[in-house]
Computed example of a mutant assay.
Amino acid sequence: MIQTEITPFLEKISSPLTKKEINVLQINLGKRCNLACNHCHVEAGPQRTEELSLEICLELIDFLFKFPEIKIVDLTGGAPEMNYGFKPLVEAARLAGKQVIVRSNLTIFFVESFGYLPEFFAKNQVRVVASLPCYLADNVDKMRGNGVFDDSIKALQWLNKLGYGKDPNLILDLVYNPQLPKDDKFSLTPEQTNLEIAYKTFLQEHFDIVFNNLFTITNLPVGRTKLHLERKKLYSSYLQFLESQFNPDTVENLMCRDEISVDYLGNLYDCDFNQMMNLPAKTKNGKTLTISTLLKAGSLDLISEVQTSDYCYGCTAGCGSSCGGALV
C-alpha cells in the first residue's frame, strides 16, 4: 500500500524532542553570496542584501563572552565572509576561547577584496567546512555554476599550503550534497565512511589535496530544494520517501538538540532549516526568543522543546544528516 500522507514528526518519535545543554551557536550572517547554488536552502545569491547589523553584531559579541557553555561558534550564510560582522565575530569568538567554524563555498577567495581569507582563517585557527558536492567537475558545476569546481580545487590547494588538512590545529572538512532528484527514483546520501575514502583517494591522486573529514548532508525540502521539488511535482513524494527511511537511532544525536541558530536580525531558532522556514524557537509559554532575550535572562535554558516539521525527516533518514554529517 502506497503511503499518501506524512505522519507528523512528533507523532513518529512519540514524545517531545527535548533540548539538551546548548553548546553550539550557529549564526547566519546574511543572504549575500557570490554564488546562487540550485540546492541552497538559504536561497542566497549575489542580488540578496540582507545581512547582520552593527547592533546585532555587538549583542552577539557580548553573548560570546557571557556564556562559557557555548563551545562552538558556527558561521554560515550566504557566504558568511561577505556579510557584515564576519571578522569581528571570528576574532571575538577566538578571544573568548571558542572553536570557530566557517561554512565556506571556497570560491569567495577569488572575489575581489576577499583574498585575505585563507591567511585570516589560518591565523585564527578557524575550522573550514567547505562545500564540494562531488569530486567530479561536471557534477559540481551543474549544481553550483560554471568554473566553481576549478576555483574550489585552487582554494583547497591554497589552504593545504597554509597547513590545512595537515596541522592538527587547522581542520579542513568537505561537505557532500547529492544532486537534486529529477524523478521519483529517490536515494539517500552514500555511506559517509566509504565516500570519504573515495574523495580522499581521488583528490590526492589528481590534485595532491588532503583534508580531514567528509560530511554527507541530505537535501532537505527547504529553500531552493523545495522550489525545485515543487516544480517537478516531487515535493510530497520526496517527503514520503524520507519518512519511509526514518531511523529512530538518529534522534539522540540531532544537531537541533544542543545548538541554537540565530538569524541576521537576532531571532532564535532550533536549527538553520527552521530558520529558513520561519519556525522560531519558543519557550514553554510559547514566546519567541531573540539574542537580546537570552542576554537579559542570563540563561540558555529558556527552550525546553525543539520545534519540528515534516522536513525533520530529512535529518533522521538513513544514517541521519546534520551540519557535521551522518549521525549514526
Rank of each mutant, 00 (worst) to 15 (best):
K233M: 05
T18W: 06
E252L: 06
N169K: 14
Y116C: 02
E51A: 07
S152Q: 14
L60Q: 04
R94G: 05
I70H: 01
Q240Y: 10
D74N: 12
G163P: 14
E119G: 00
T18P: 01
P248W: 10
A198R: 14
F211E: 09
I303T: 01
E51N: 10
E51Y: 02
E205M: 08
T308K: 13
F186P: 10
S236F: 01
T283A: 00
Y164I: 11
S237W: 11
L52K: 03
Y313L: 06
L302V: 13
G320Q: 12
L170K: 15
I209Q: 10
I291W: 04
E259A: 03
P181G: 10
F273T: 01
E119F: 04
N139R: 13
L156Q: 14
S113C: 12
S299E: 07
D301M: 08
V102P: 12
K185E: 11
A122V: 08
G85V: 12
N169W: 01
K185S: 04
D167Q: 09
F9N: 00
L268M: 01
L279M: 14
V73W: 10
F211M: 05
Y235W: 09
N83E: 11
S104F: 15
P88S: 12
C256K: 07
S236P: 09
K154M: 13
L203V: 13
I22T: 15
P248L: 06
A326W: 06
I291S: 06
D183E: 08
A79D: 13
N278H: 04
K20P: 00
I61M: 11
E191C: 09
K233Y: 04
T189G: 03
R144Y: 14
V128A: 01
L180D: 11
Y176A: 05
F241H: 12
F246E: 02
F211K: 14
R231Q: 15
T288D: 02
N247D: 07
G298F: 03
N38Q: 02
L229V: 04
L327Q: 10
S15W: 02
L75N: 05
G45D: 04
P178Y: 06
C323V: 15
A198W: 14
S187R: 12
Y313V: 03
Y238T: 11
G163M: 12
G298A: 04
C271G: 04
V90D: 03
L302A: 12
E252V: 14
C319W: 13
